[in-house]
Design a protein around this nucleic acid. Structure first.
Lengths: 370, 370
DNA sequence: ACCCGCCCCGTTAGCGCTAACAGTAGCACC
DNA sequence: GGTGCTACTGTTAGCGCTAACGGGGCGGGT
């Protein structure tokens, strides 16, 4: 006679699996996590039972019993929407795998005290670790506050990580250099550069990568037309205007992100320049904006979702380490970027024949309906 | 002598609160959720204790004990990134409040069989309910598959909800009419309309609202210049080209979403038209694109985050209802929209004096650096 | 032969919370 | 004074899982 149990939801539990495999629940548990000290044959039997019963462990029970981290916080502040959604998707996938909740909060203020205040309220609520995507990953007030409270943090895309912190990033220097080399190999020698927000270390890395690649090709970086931008579309408009108003306008523009590159295209069109015929434009990030504008942007793809996943994994590993006493792993992970060549870049050939007024007649897009 | 308890995490539990308030844990539980049949004085004592101890219930334990829904699924398919991130933020907030996990999966395929396949795999994994934001909220294959499996669904922004389903939306008809009235009140009489994707019921609602408002002002909707769009930037480019190539081009363009409105601005600029001087352009959705472009878009704001929260609440209420046997509430919730007037619209006055070639000189944006 | 240690597996006791089921008091009503 | 009812609160027994420990079996060292 089986006890009918107070409230039986039809779900299959670890007990069911244990019965089916002819072992105890504990052994099933061992097989599922880690799985050390279990004979190969037993493990297979359990795995078999898991598969046939289509068992998946109850995360609530698991984290309750194990006392695991259940709430990971994420503080964000108005990056591009495309970046944020990609990031959230990655973070959610990692959270699901780990069986932890993702708690998000926005922190739009620029004021240090206010940032600290928001952070404190956030941190003391419930979360056991915090993920900081850019641009907040560069915010000292927040990082300091979190450190004071004693909550582990993982930063994403931070240029100069502390020695004792967790960080995930790509190699901005190498990526920018790669993109620059690509433009140089097309034949461009006068390349305008729109810098990113000066507060971000990544901005400087990208600028340095740009300069380094120029030098490889024997071009003096100090002569290169360069304008300050702030990662916004608006700042890109202004910078592009200045770039193209120069006595000798560049044949290509390398913007430090896609928003500013899109702005450069817009300015070029307004001036009657075709892209890429009269002007090549390339960006950075490969956000969705890169494929919405026409022509689609050549850009550097950051694996945003993967970076978010990596960040969560790093954080959870650290948390586990802290709990079990096994030292913490101060880690940095550098993920691979990728150069995405699309339609906004080409050899500067048409520059010499086509910088005419002909290009003023707007192209009619009959084929780009869908 | 207090039992040292196997592994004590320093967290305050419901027991601590009960002791502090001089009641049993059960009473504390009652106060926290629902709170019926508790004397006012007891309730206050408990609330007091909760506050002083800074207690927050352990969601893992709660959902384990109550057998509540723990995993809510969300199937998405490439809406605009801005929409998705807003939606995710709202959904995550609601999920946090309810203490449930948000499980997301993408379903990019257009093929019915493939959609069903993805849905099946998704649904049989773990989730107890599914949220369907647009454009998937209109996908019959997915809805049918979910119904077959018996998983409750809440659709968002679906035009024609079934009688027995959960749906959250805004009043697209009213919103479009409102926007049209606004343009009419500015003096526009020739308003070009770019329709949305014909598969979306909301597209038709918006077109109907547009027509209805025209009629109020004695303008014949059948005479109004109208072009088909598909919610994409590219389709907006083509539609705008056609609209502005007409013998008598309109003085304003109402695009069914922001992406297409942004495209309209781009086309206008390429043609040497100033916005809003020569052409007013308005959009729909108030995605981040609306404030990215220059000039910033007049548009209709959908409370996207709030809609996501409402969707989750509806779904969870339904789930609770099913579990407790209390009938399900087939509900639809219509949230408030808002007309956001920005810089892309104005009276058509300048049309008569300024449709000249003068406007070709691109404006220089010295002030929009930040 | 004995002990020690290792591998493998089961048993016990909760993790923090809540459903279900008692009570216990207080009031009304015949 | 009993009976019935309502309003409130406590007790018991788990939800599904895992930490901690215990114990049997087996090999190798002394």
């Amino acid at each position: 006679m089986n006890k009918p149990s107070r409230r039986s939801r039809g779900t299959t539990t670890i007990e069911d699996v244990a019965r089916a495999a002819g072992v105890s629940a504990m052994t099933v548990s061992r097989v599922i996590n880690g799985g050390q000290n279990v004979r190969e044959s037993t493990r297979n039997a359990v795995l078999e039972a898991v598969k046939t019963l289509n068992y998946s462990p109850n995360t609530a029970a698991r984290s309750l019993a194990a006392g695991e981290a259940t709430h990971i916080g994420m503080l964000y502040a108005n990056p591009s929407a495309a970046y944020l959604s990609q990031f959230l998707i990655g973070a959610l996938h990692a959270a699901r795998r780990a069986g932890c909740h993702l708690v998000i909060e926005s922190c739009e203020s620029e004021d240090a005290d206010e940032q600290a205040e928001v952070t404190r309220r956030f941190a003391t609520s419930d979360v056991e670790g915090v993920v900081l995507p850019p641009p907040l990953s560069e915010s000292q007030p927040i990082i300091a506050e979190l450190a004071a409270i004693g909550i582990p943090v993982v930063t994403v895309a931070m240029g100069s990580p502390q020695e004792d912190s967790l960080n995930v990033r790509i190699d901005d220097f190498a990526a920018a250099a790669e993109m620059t080399r690509y433009l140089l190999s097309l034949g461009h020698r006068s390349i305008g550069f729109i810098k990113g927000h000066p507060n971000h270390i990544a901005s400087h890395d990208r600028a340095r990568g740009f300069a380094a690649a120029l030098r490889e090709y024997g071009v003096d970086p100090d002569e290169a037309p360069m304008e300050q931008g702030y990662f916004t579309y608006r700042s890109g408009l202004a910078a592009s205007e200045r770039l193209l108003s120069r006595p000798k306008p560049p044949s290509a523009i390398f913007a430090s992100n896609d928003d500013m590159a899109a702005a450069a295209i817009s300015v070029a069109h307004r001036r009657g320049l075709t892209v890429p015929g009269d002007l090549s434009v390339v960006g950075f990030d490969d956000t969705s904006l890169a494929t919405t504008v026409w022509p689609e942007l050549t850009t550097v793809k950051q694996p945003i979702s993967a970076m978010a996943e990596a960040a969560l994994e790093l954080l959870l590993a650290d948390l586990r380490g802290r709990r079990s006493g096994t030292g913490r792993h101060f880690a940095e992970r550098v993920l691979e970027h990728e150069l995405i060549v699309r339609e906004s870049s080409s050899a500067p050939g048409t520059l010499w024949v086509g910088r005419s007024r002909r290009s003023r007649t707007a192209p009619v897009h009959t084929a780009d309906v869908s």
